[in-house]
């Protein structure tokens, strides 16, 4: 029983991070129908900036919360600038190009970001400075650390805020209108380019926060970490129904839980024939099964093609 609870907690924490990254994919997709392949790398850059900043400051006299906060702000600023520039340079000129062209520039961008990170920070894993709280609590026989609580609460609050932003504010209405049709929104006086830029800024900020969380959670950052993270988050977005914001949240949380439970139980279930090294198979397998049963994801609008 306590193993179940433990895996659920771990899965929920991991899933909330996936969800934050997935939001970046899904918002961009919702408006541009573009798989922003570089989004995972933006997350990685966020992690790197955070770790580097915190590492640089942690020797000094500043109190730890200030250090952490500075690291977070630096990561967010860096990622938002990056996201903005990427959209302007690599995506905007191709908005009316053949469909796969921006996908290729996105791949190019992610290769570039990876290699820049490698040039700056090297090939080795970078440890997260030991400044984090180490406390933990017992919950239903399982252990939940302060860090896990912090990640989970922050992620849930951010999701709530984003949901309110999209569904309750003028900006959100403009975003939804732009997602319906950029030219039509333009007729209503909505500046599509501005909305797209804002979308990238928000997505990149969320990516930075997730990057910070992941590196804090695992205690590591690495130039290659964005790839698998991005892949999982994109899967989560698709699982929930890409383009759908609540879908991305649901998909992220589900994927985290599935992965965690899968890793925890698959060994016992198959008597050790299939071990936790099949964890990633498990995630993809669920994704594929869901999509085959519901081709537009869990919360995606069914693609009824009206003839």
């Amino acid at each position: 029983m306590d193993i179940l609870v433990q895996q659920l907690i771990n899965g929920l924490v991991l899933g909330s991070v996936y969800a934050l990254i997935a939001l970046g994919y899904t918002m961009v997709y919702g408006i541009l129908e573009l798989i922003n392949f570089a989004h995972g790398e933006i997350t990685m850059i966020g992690a790197m900036i955070a770790v580097a900043t915190i590492g640089a400051l942690s020797g000094g006299a500043l109190p730890i919360p200030v250090i952490l906060f500075t690291g977070l702000v630096a990561a967010m600023a860096g990622c938002m600038a990056l996201g903005y520039v990427i959209e302007r340079i690599a995506y905007r000129p191709l908005r009316h190009a053949p469909r796969l062209a921006p996908l290729i520039t996105a791949i190019g961008v992610s290769i570039v970001l990876q290699n820049i990170a490698m040039l700056i920070w090297g090939r080795q894993y970078i440890a997260f400075p030991p400044v984090l709280p180490q406390g933990w609590h017992t919950l239903l026989g399982a252990r939940i650390t302060d860090l896990q609580v912090a990640i989970l609460v922050t992620a849930l609050v951010l999701m709530l805020v984003l949901d309110l932003l999209v569904h309750r504010t003028r900006l959100g209405r403009a975003m939804r209108a732009t997602a319906q049709s950029i030219p039509l929104a333009g007729l209503m006086g909505i500046n599509g380019n501005r909305i797209i830029s804002i979308t990238f800024l928000i997505g990149s900020a969320l990516a930075a926060i997730s990057g910070f969380m992941v590196s804090a959670y695992y205690g590591l950052a690495h130039y290659y970490m964005g790839f698998l993270l991005g892949l999982k988050a994109f899967s989560a977005a698709v699982l929930g129904g890409i383009g759908n914001i609540r879908g991305a949240m649901l998909g992220g949380l589900l994927l985290g839980i599935i992965e965690s439970l899968g890793a925890g139980y698959i060994g016992t279930l198959t008597h050790g024939v299939i071990g936790s090294n099949y964890q990633d198979v498990f995630a993809f397998f669920v994704l594929i099964t869901v999509l085959i049963l519901r081709p537009s994801g869990l919360l995606g609008a069914p693609a009824t093609d009206r003839a």
Binding site: I35, V238, I242, N277, D280, V281, F285, L291, I292, G297
Partner: peptide, 28 residues
């Protein structure tokens, strides 16, 4: 066969998943 009903980017992610699954199996 299982992907026949999927369109565009959904197909992309499922084929990606299959590709990774095969690789992970080869690995294990």
């Amino acid at each position: 066969a299982p992907t026949l009903r999927l369109r565009g980017d959904y197909l992309a992610i499922v084929t990606l998943g299959f590709g990774e699954i095969i690789r992970i199996f080869l690995n294990n």
